[in-house]
């Protein structure tokens, strides 16, 4: 018998780890990995809520499916951008990609 709180705490931990990765990784691919962690944490939350609170509702599942789609799209575009930036500027470090500096 696992309480809902365990899943939520686990998901929060995963989420915060993801944030930390996003904020600290120098390599943009690492940043992308952090984003993936955060998305996974969200998915766990969604599934936990569905499973514990609204098992009859189908909407939660649809939500998760859409998140999967969005994650896949995000990864594809993100990696394409990284490859493109790498090709033109020969760098993958986030702090060197600063064309928009004021």
């Amino acid at each position: 018998m696992i309480p809902l709180s365990w899943y939520l705490i686990f998901a929060a931990g995963l989420f915060v780890t993801g944030i930390f990765g996003v904020l600290t990784r120098r390599n943009v691919i690492g940043v992308l990995m952090g984003v993936e962690l955060m998305l996974n944490a969200v998915n766990i939350n969604l599934l936990a809520f569905w499973s514990y609170l609204y098992p009859e509702s189908i909407s939660g599942l649809v939500f998760i499916a859409i998140v999967f789609v969005a994650a896949a799209a995000e990864t594809a575009v993100g990696l394409a951008l990284i490859i493109s930036i790498y090709r033109r500027r020969h760098t993958v470090y986030a702090e060197e990609i600063n064309l928009l500096r004021g």
């Binding site: 575009v77 394409a80 951008l81």
Partner: peptide, 15 residues
């Protein structure tokens, strides 16, 4: 599905 197709096409175009 439209989002996926757009992302796919966009990814190919960008990369």
């Amino acid at each position: 599905s439209i989002l996926l197709v757009a992302a796919l096409a966009g990814a190919i175009y960008v990369a």
